[in-house]
């Protein structure tokens, strides 16, 4: 069973703009799934609905079998979240902030909290007021509060926004460690393609409130084989490919269904008098996928 199930979410803001239009996807236990989209695509609205902070017009979210809309407390006990910018009480210390937030979950284990604080490398500054924290430290504290008390799943809403390159790298490594060492399921909301490409197994792409893609992040464990043709006769090459029931795109990229191999198509191209300058395996990037969806 999927740990997170997002079903037919529809949300219209008062201004009349449809923020979400029948969006649905699921996240299996142990996966890192990226929720991608341009600014205003509806990513944060999905997150808000998942946390019960935004009321959907239609649809629902189930977390670990509990509906957020009808069994909010039971559902949210399964997750930890960083939703929008991490806002702490600047007049309290990091430790006091953690304690205050954990009191709302009805759980406080000091030893566990110390362990998590050390894990996010904030143990040296945890007793300082959060008003003195850098942005990176605030993000680490946000991660610490999300990890208490031991959630099955993390919902991270643009967690690396405003971090410096070192901070982003550290954060990425930490998230991967959470999945690899602790089997954590993570839903990462981001508009940074590189971030999703490096961290996620699968991704869901939203565009103007609609889901336009759900699948494996290109280059991650997929079986599809693509070749790219460089030739002055691309149009003729497209005709040859069509005869083999293959589709060549504008960049000369052809996706081969298994078990077809590249040399089979190359032979057909040569026999069809196509002047082949190069015929090379092509690895599709997430950026290409994303931009391709945009052009549609």
């Amino acid at each position: 069973m999927a740990l997170l199930e997002i079903q037919h979410l529809t949300k219209q803001w008062k201004a009349g703009k449809l923020a979400l239009d029948d969006v649905g996807f699921s996240v299996q236990a142990g996966e890192i799934v990226g929720l991608l989209g341009h600014n205003g695509a509806g990513k944060s609205t999905v997150m808000g609905i998942m946390l019960g902070m935004v009321h959907p017009d239609k649809g629902q979210v189930n977390i670990g079998g509990y509906s957020v809309q009808t069994q909010r407390a039971a559902a949210l006990r399964q997750i930890g979240a960083i939703y929008e910018a991490a806002a702490f009480y600047d007049y309290l210390t990091g430790w006091q902030n953690l304690k205050a937030l954990c009191s709302l979950s009805g759980y406080w284990d000091e030893a566990e909290a110390r362990r998590i604080v050390k894990l996010v490398q904030l143990h040296d500054r945890i007793d300082a007021k959060t008003g003195t924290y850098s942005h990176g430290m605030r993000q680490r504290l946000a991660l610490a509060q999300a990890l208490l008390p031991q959630p099955k799943c993390l919902l991270l809403d643009e967690p690396t926004d405003g971090l410096d390159p070192e901070g982003i790298t550290e954060f990425r490594e930490f998230i991967l460690r959470l999945r690899d060492e602790f089997g954590m399921t993570i839903l990462l909301n981001s508009h940074l393609l590189g971030e999703v490409e490096q961290m996620c197994d699968r991704c869901v792409i939203l565009r103007e409130g609609k889901k336009v893609f759900e699948g494996i992040v290109p280059g991650r464990g997929e079986n599809k084989v693509r070749f790219q043709l460089t030739s002055p006769d691309v149009q003729e090459g497209r005709v040859v490919c069509a005869r083999l029931e293959l589709k060549m795109d504008r960049e000369g990229i052809v996706e081969l269904p298994p078990p077809m191999e590249g040399h089979t198509v190359l032979r057909a191209l040569v026999e069809g008098n196509v002047r082949v300058e190069s015929w090379q395996p092509h690895k599709q990037s997430l950026e290409e996928l994303y931009l391709g969806l945009r052009r549609r």
Partner: peptide, 18 residues
């Protein structure tokens, strides 16, 4: 306004109780 409410309500607590 300060965003604290979003941090608080990301926890398993009902709005009524909070």
């Amino acid at each position: 306004e300060d965003g604290h409410m979003r941090m608080l309500l990301a926890r398993p607590i009902s709005r009524f109780r909070l």
